[in-house]
Amino acid sequence: MPRSNRPRHRGRRARGMNGVEEQDDFARLRAGLRRTETKRGVAWTVQPISPERALKEYTCPGCHTMVPIGQAHIVAWPAEHLFGDEQGVAERRHWHSHCWRMA
């Protein structure tokens, strides 16, 4: 019997090897990957925020001006907080990307 070149499952999204949808993986890559950086002897967890995900205004702790809605920026919080990870995340701050690099 000849082989069919048509996809068998119309309407389904392609899934990666671990079962996660490939479109979700692409969205995560576009949004930016969380990483750990060390600044002045302190480890920080850093998460880039894409313009599409920047839905609020924040005050940058580096320059004390506003990070406007729709501007790509960085969110940072202590990687190891004295009172636990939840408290560290609660103390996260939104920085202009330039201000974070200069800090």
Rank of each mutant, 00 (worst) to 15 (best):
M1G: 14
V89E: 11
R34L: 08
L55H: 09
E57S: 10
P48M: 06
H98T: 11
E80H: 11
E86D: 15
Q71S: 12
G19S: 05
Q23C: 13
H98I: 02
R3M: 09
H94M: 05
E86L: 09
G16A: 15
T38Y: 06
R28P: 01
L55V: 14
D85I: 06
E37G: 04
P51K: 00
W95P: 00
P2R: 07
G62W: 02
K39N: 10
G19C: 01
Q71Y: 10
R93I: 00
N18S: 14
P51Q: 03
V20G: 03
W77C: 06
I74E: 00
E57C: 13
H64A: 10
W44N: 02
I74W: 05
I74A: 01
T38V: 13
R40K: 15
E52D: 12
E91W: 04
A90Q: 11
L82H: 13
A103Y: 03
D25Q: 08
S50T: 15
T45P: 04
Q23K: 15
Q71K: 11
S97N: 02
L55N: 10
T45Y: 06
H81N: 13
H94W: 04
A72Q: 07
R28C: 08
A103N: 03
R101F: 03
Q87I: 14
V75W: 02
P48E: 08
K39Y: 05
I49R: 03
R35Q: 12
D85N: 03
G11K: 02
T65A: 08
P61I: 15
P51F: 07
Q87C: 12
P2T: 06
T36H: 09
R53S: 14
W100P: 01
R93P: 00
K56C: 03
S4D: 12
L33P: 00
A79K: 06
H94L: 03
S97F: 00
W44H: 12
N5S: 10
P61G: 05
E91M: 10
M66F: 03
W95D: 00
R53I: 09
W95Y: 08
L33Y: 04
I69K: 15
R15W: 06
V20W: 04
G41E: 08
G11I: 08
A43I: 09
H81C: 06
G70Q: 14
R8L: 12
V89L: 11
Q87T: 14
D24Y: 10
A14K: 13
E37M: 13
F83P: 00
G70S: 11
A103K: 01
R92Y: 00
M1C: 13
K39A: 12
R101D: 13
L29I: 10
Q47C: 09
D25C: 11
P2E: 04
H9K: 03
R53W: 06
G16P: 00
L55G: 08
A31L: 05
W44S: 00
R34H: 09
P68F: 05
V75D: 02
E21G: 06
R3N: 09
E37I: 07
S4M: 04
L55K: 06
E21D: 12
G19E: 12
V20Q: 14
Y58W: 13
A14V: 13
R93T: 00
Q47H: 09
A43E: 13
H96K: 02
